[in-house]
């Protein structure tokens, strides 16, 4: 077959390796994919250079060609990264190309992992390249909840120690101003505020994660609490709740803040009670909060049941079975 590679003198020395899908020996491919001829040709040359473990310019441009046809090919990215480092290529140029590919394939995770592999190189990126934050905001303009992008941003924060970089919090607040229900942005804020900063274990996550001697109930709780910071975060959550009282994100953010500080839900009893009075409920999440406060307080079980019944009968009928589950647990506790 006459193809782009078979007619190119640069590739004349390479013998392509055809795809062996097993059918010649009687096997039947599950899910047969009709690959276009250009893809079949390019990948036959890819197998040949991979088999020779070739680190060359022509192999590098071949990987780009294959990726443009199938970005989900999982070894071509690893091979490409190896060549980039072996040939000491300009990684900023690679990042520029990746920006375009990322905007084209929004759901592909290999692209983001590749980016992470490049940025991991301390030799090339001893400090945080500030253009990264601009590009991520460009990605969030397409989809402000893109999971791969947030996961990558999380990694950047840990790798370059960006917790207190003003830009991180500014971007989170910009996104929350645009959409106060963006749970990804709320989560990022939580990580900035309470994520572990000990990088001696380079990628361990939650406080005490890898420590088997820590009781599971203690995991995630801060050992040193900055009470002013906690108060500031609780205030921030309150303001967001006032903007959209039925938005679940800030209510759960506040629960997480109190837990990290080792402070209980009862601390918000006064604030939350303002949302719930006879015949006037301002947020169903406030009703749930009060139910949880009363459930923990001896002698208040009946009040908790009253709150849960209100949710079940008036504000959240879809979760009737769940509220019944909660009511049953309280009944068992009392009995």
């Amino acid at each position: 077959m006459e193809g782009k590679y078979s007619t190119d003198p640069e590739w004349a020395s390479v013998t392509p390796i055809d795809l062996d899908d097993g059918s010649s020996s009687g096997a039947m491919p599950l899910a047969t994919i009709a690959y276009p001829a250009e893809y079949l040709e390019a990948t036959s040359y890819l197998r040949a250079v991979m088999a020779a473990n070739e680190m060359s310019e022509r192999a590098l441009s071949l990987t780009k060609d294959v990726i443009s046809m199938n970005p989900a090919h999982y070894t071509v990215w690893i091979y490409r990264a190896k060549i980039l480092f072996a040939l000491d290529k300009d990684l900023n140029e690679e990042l520029n190309w990746l920006n375009d590919v990322s905007l084209k394939y929004l759901k592909n995770y290999q692209i983001w992992h590749h980016r992470q592999v490049l940025l991991s190189s301390k030799a090339h990126f001893p400090t945080f390249p500030p253009k990264e934050a601009d590009f991520l905001m460009e990605m969030f303009a397409q989809d402000s909840k893109n999971y791969h992008v947030w996961t990558y941003r999380h990694w950047l924060v840990r790798h370059f120690r960006l917790w207190d970089q003003p830009r991180e919090l500014e971007d989170v607040e910009f996104l929350l101003k645009a959409d106060v229900r963006n749970n990804s942005a709320w989560n990022h804020r939580y990580m900035l505020r309470f994520g572990p900063r000990d990088t001696s274990l380079p990628d361990a996550g939650m406080v005490n994660a890898g420590d088997l001697s820590t009781a599971p109930t203690e995991k995630g709780r801060l050992s040193i609490v900055d009470e002013d910071l906690i108060d500031g975060e609780l205030k921030f959550a309150q303001e967001a709740i006032l903007r959209a009282p039925e938005n679940r994100s800030p209510w759960w953010y506040a629960r997480g803040v109190l837990r990290a500080a080792g402070r209980g839900l009862a601390e918000w009893e006064g604030f939350v009670s303002g949302f719930v009075s006879e015949g006037a409920v301002k947020s169903s999440h406030a009703v749930e909060w009060l139910a949880d406060v009363f459930a923990e307080r001896a002698g208040k079980e009946a009040e908790a049941v009253r709150m849960l019944t209100m949710l079940k009968e008036e504000f959240d009928p879809i979760r009737k079975n769940y509220w019944d589950y909660r009511i049953r647990k309280l009944d068992q506790a009392v009995a």
Binding site: W150, T151, N187, G210, L212, W252, G256
Partner: peptide, 27 residues
């Protein structure tokens, strides 16, 4: 096995769900 369990436990987020890695968003 124990390290494996410990990693999984660390993926539980402040809202009760589990994330791809520790401190990512529950999913």
């Amino acid at each position: 096995v124990l390290g494996f369990i410990s990693f999984i436990e660390a993926c539980q987020t402040y809202d009760g769900g589990m994330a791809e890695s520790p401190f990512c968003e529950s999913h």
